[in-house]
Amino acid sequence: MRLPSINRSFIVLAVIVLFLILVPILGSRSTVNLVAEMAAVLAIALMWNLLAGFGGMVFMGFQVFVGIGGYAVFMAANGFQVLPFPFILLSAALCALTALAIMPILSRLQGAQFAIASWVISEVVRLTVFQTSVLGGGGGISLTAMRSVPRELRMYGTYGSAALVLIVALVVCVFLMRSRVGLALRAIRDNATAAEAMGIDLRRTQRLVMMIAAAVAGAGGGAYYMLALQIGPGTAFSMNWMAITLFVVILGGIGTLEGPIVGVVVYFLLRETLSDLGSVYFILLGLMAILVTLLFPKGAWGGLRQLIGQDLLPIRRNPSESKG
């Protein structure tokens, strides 16, 4: 039986939420932390996929939002010496503003130039943070506000924040892509000129999606570094974030919602089993990314989808329920 696609999305979202609720009840401390980390990484990857996979904006400096999101939580919580969890909202706001600020530079660039310019912007932020002693300079800062927080609260609060960001990321993806904005975004990716001729405001659509993606990724960065308790410009604004994101998205299947979910599971499985190999592990990741792009451009989800026969988080309405 084929359910109306929106109901199918609700069911799958509900299953994911249920899973995220069960983890802290049933899971061990290390499991909870691992799932929290996965949730943050997945939220970031979903947002990059939203930009690149759906919107055709290959933002190669995505770590800028992770870093800003992380620093926002640290600075605010340390400054007031209060619980850091609510400040992921500040991360989101700050990153949305950053996106708004950089769009004038990026909006007229495409493809490789867009990719590199976004990378340069991230470098500017990294180098600036590096030089700013208030932000801890090159050495970074610790989340001192967390010291007085009881261990249990620290763990569950961090987990909850990360899980919440992930749920928001998934809901945003499903509803945004089913909305007129999502349709416009895909039209722009497929043919920008034709989309503009049809009356789609290219810049406004791209700006909106960029701000949303930045906000959620920033919150994800905030959640991630609450878990890490330590942040520095070298790691927070590192290209490694880009490598992880790309790997999760490509391996799972770029331009789908299910892809990054599959990708994040594969990535963490590989990391938990192979990361002792050091640089050989990274060489393997790079090789896999290249091979998947060349040979299986639809990624792991592309294969799974053929087995299942339908999307789990459909972004296109079934023809029968479409009102145009």
Partner: peptide
């Protein structure tokens, strides 16, 4: 535009390591 960017980024990671 995407595949060349993804593939050469993968190449970059491989070469560095």
């Amino acid at each position: 535009e995407m595949p060349p960017i993804l593939v050469t980024f993968g190449l970059s990671i491989i070469l560095q390591n």
